[in-house]
Nucleic acid binder design. Structure first.
Lengths: 179, 179
DNA sequence: TCGAGTATCTTGATGGACGAGATTATCGAG
DNA sequence: CTCGATAATCTCGTCCATCAAGATACTCGA
């Protein structure tokens, strides 16, 4: 689209760029549509997924860390958690050691919702991937992993250019990040 | 994450799924951060890109079609265009044939902004892709193209489940769609 | 053990974006 | 030249994010 070259490889680069853009636009639309279908908004859905992820890893998330992941102010996070708790999706639990902290745990309705979001997507993933060999998938993985790294750097650069000092999220550390 | 298998291929599938999820999350963050940096919001940025895309294809977009692409109500679209026009990013032009219609054209500040969004991303893309052979990129392209198709189907399914009757956007037609 | 400093979450006020529905302008068919 | 359909706009209410301040709990040095 922007910068079009004539050689075959240049065309390929452009195609992939366009693929990626389309993919993320679709992903956003899907999240938005699914959320709306269940009376949530896009942020709520992201939060629900983050809470579930953390819980499945045995490392419950706190409002503070949730705010970092979603890039939300602390006040917004409280309101967000209020909404989700009111909807019965998650619940708050005070830490016994440090009573300032609140741990977020998902309640069953929330978990079911998250599963119903991912299950069909997973099926579709499987369908597509079935058409590729192990070696091909390996290439795809290598490519996507590198793209994600590059995107994260870019994200941090933009955030740094703003006022937020890059706001070291879990993304700064190499790869143990939940997502 | 969800459904983890032990064999190598299963692991690969899970990894790629995770890659894709991370990618779209990052893409969203980048859009949000960039928009905020320039006094816009995420919707405004998407709209600006859509307007530019259409214009570059020589087929200026109308508010109605823009609303379809962004999945916005007509009222929101009007407000959105007001904002962008006020900011000097785009301008409205009445169609001479059908005076109900309004064509959206980007003004220079808007174009510059869109370019300053894509240019660094393009550079990063190039860097990553330089590390892959033609054949490998071919595989990536094939994979992503299929994923996009699958995602679109899913999106339409969800929207159909809602109230909107799949709202035939440009996505229904095979591939000449801008995005 | 007291107190200043810090961390974590919450509250309240404000502004802005979005959606729903009514309204205005225009077009095409009979 | 009406009537219905279509495109955009306007109005209003709701909801969400941000900001600034506040409440509570921990930490550590004197």
């Amino acid at each position: 689209m922007y910068r079009r070259r004539d050689d075959r490889r240049g065309q390929m680069v452009a195609d992939i760029t366009r693929d990626l853009r389309r993919y993320s636009v679709e992903a956003q639309h899907i999240g938005h549509a699914f959320a709306g279908l269940h009376g949530l908004n896009a942020t709520d859905l992201h939060a629900l997924i983050a809470v579930m992820d953390a819980e499945l890893l045995g490392d419950p998330i706190t409002p503070g860390r949730l705010g970092e992941q979603l890039n939300l102010s602390s006040g917004s996070v409280t309101a967000l958690i209020d909404r989700l708790e009111r909807g019965g999706h998650i619940r708050r639990d005070r830490d016994t050691a440090d009573r300032r902290k609140v741990f977020l745990h998902y309640a069953d309705p929330g978990a079911a919702l998250a599963r119903s979001f991912f299950a069909p997507l997973g099926r579709r993933n499987d369908e597509v991937m079935a058409r590729f060999s192990d070696e091909e998938l390996e290439v795809v993985h290598r490519f996507m992993a590198e793209m994600v790294i590059s995107m994260r750097e870019h994200r941090d650069a933009i955030r740094a250019a703003r006022g937020e000092p890059a706001r070291r999220t879990a993304g700064t550390d190499p790869d143990n990040a939940t997502r």
